[in-house]
Amino acid sequence: MNFSIEDYYADLIDGNVLLAYKGSINTELINNVLDTIESKLQDFNEPSKVRKKVYNVLVESLQNLFHHIDDLPDEYKDDFESRFGILVVSKEGNKYRISTGNFIRNDKIAYLKEKIDQINSSNREELKEMYKFILNHQKLSEKGGGGLGLVDIARKTGNKLKYTFVPFDDEYSFYNLDVFVDEVIEKKNS
């Protein structure tokens, strides 16, 4: 097993970290994280535009994690809590970075990769159309927004989604997603 959660986590929290968490992703945790980040952004005196973007993107990132985490088989349960995920919110230069990490079944990777690549290769107008299409045509699953989350994040941030899949064993990989929110937001429609 080459992949080490500890090393991976240590790398992530190396910087200007607002919040770092590894463990079970549940509703209570989500509420705590949202409260914490909201008050930190207030303390930083960020303009409301930036605060709202970071908050919005954080909500989607956390709820994506919440809805899509794959549980590991029992043989790992001594190593990881159930619904194990990682969340790190940090500030790098003039960007906020929201990193999420979770185990994913290998058979789901191709689909997810294709989806993110499609989002990353779309411009603003295409993302808007993609968002509206999913909103209007796809059934809401009990798991959430039917794939709207990533499109919404890409639209709101205007930045590419950065992902990695690190092989863990025959069945699972560790999926990391980095989302960046610029501290200075340029006017749209220009």
Binding site: N56, Q63, L135, G145, G146, L148
Partner: peptide, 13 residues
Amino acid sequence: LEYFNTSSSKCIL
């Protein structure tokens, strides 16, 4: 609305 998530966006529709 001050904020809404994508899960709500379908319901609002």
